[in-house]
């Protein structure tokens, strides 16, 4: 397993690129790459050549997260102004604007079936679930406060929810917080199940293995990537190697590898059998905020692709094999 650089686009955005995701292929077109940036735009790129397809404006502050519907036709972007803009990928027409004050908006993910959009609610210590047909909130998954915090205490911000991930069967949601804990919810019952402990700094990114609905990967500012048995509350493994915060993690479609991006400006590829870093890409010149494997589908199913985005305003595309 290895990564081979295909193309890099310098100055892909006017400012730091913070978010990346793939919109899956539809009947009429191959997969597209969506990137969100501090320059308040979302840009749509044609894959492999990374040709700029469109620039979507409409946010007033930096775009912190982008998420694509599994069918590939719609996508959502969220910015620091706490708005979520749901739009049609191909036409850029706005489908809905979501807002749930007072909670701000961080990472978002569509569920595997595409019927719910989960939005990490930051300081509200909750995850909001939006129905993708009516665009109404169907549930709010709140992290229970364990110890009654004193009003003066700043511990209220401890359960600040940054990241969110769906299990491949769509039954579970895991969310990562500023204090390093990961909370697991039952979606159907909208019920909090348990915490996963092990990180001590913010968990900025989470992803479930595509095949094992129990296996969860998390990236944290403490420089480690953890593997959890999300049902059994057990820490299976720790993978360390990054010299600074690990900002993002994504798992390959074949489930055999994960990729991480870090403040140490590198992208690392980890072999899950060996539980070790097998490759380090250092073509970015600033912290790497996002990595995303291209989902299978479309014409060229075989060839895996990984995209990474960075504060250096650039996008890099790699071949994964």
């Amino acid at each position: 397993m290895k990564l081979a650089g295909i193309k890099s686009v310098d100055n892909a955005h006017d400012d730091s690129v913070w978010a990346v995701t793939w919109a899956p292929a539809t009947a009429t077109r191959p997969p597209l790459l969506l990137t969100g940036s501090l320059d308040e735009t979302v840009r749509v790129w044609k894959s492999d050549e990374l040709i700029l397809d469109r620039t979507n404006t409409g946010h007033c502050l930096g775009v912190a997260s982008v998420a694509a519907h599994p069918l590939g036709s719609i996508a959502a972007s969220s910015s620091l102004d706490s708005f979520v803009r749901v739009f049609d990928v191909d036409s850029n027409s706005t489908i809905a604007t979501l807002e749930a004050p007072p909670s701000e908006v961080w990472q978002m993910r569509f569920d595997p079936k595409g019927s719910i959009l989960a939005v990490a609610g930051g300081g509200s210590a909750s995850v909001n679930l939006w129905d993708t047909s009516t665009w109404q909130i169907v549930a709010t998954l709140s992290i229970p406060r364990v110890e009654g915090p004193k009003p003066s205490d700043k511990s209220g911000s401890k359960k600040f929810v940054l990241s969110v991930a769906w299990s491949p069967d769509g039954k579970r949601i895991a969310c990562g917080s500023m204090d390093g804990t990961i909370s697991v919810f039952d979606v159907q019952l909208a019920k909090f199940l348990h915490h996963l402990e092990g990180h001590f700094m913010p968990v900025r990114s989470l992803v479930y293995s595509p095949y094992d609905p129990r296996l969860l990967f998390s990236a944290s500012d403490d420089g480690n990537v953890h593997m959890y048995d999300a049902e059994g509350k057990a820490l299976i493994g720790t993978m360390s190697g990054h010299a600074s915060w690990v900002l993002c993690v994504d798992v390959s479609p074949d489930g055999a590898a994960i990729a991480t991006g870090s403040s140490d400006r590198t992208v690392r590829l980890w072999d899950l059998n060996m539980r070790a870093s097998v490759q380090t890409m250092s073509n970015h010149t600033d912290q790497v905020w996002g990595v995303a494997f291209r989902p299978p589908g479309g014409n060229d199913v075989r060839s895996g692709r990984l995209a990474s985005v960075s504060d250096d305003k650039s996008i890099s595309l790699y071949d994964y094999s």
């Binding site: 501090l38 502050l61 930096g62 912190a64 620091l80 930051g122 600040f160 500023m178 913010p202």
Partner: peptide
Amino acid sequence: LQRAIHLAPS
């Protein structure tokens, strides 16, 4: 400031 917020959301 936006960068800072992004780094320290809470």
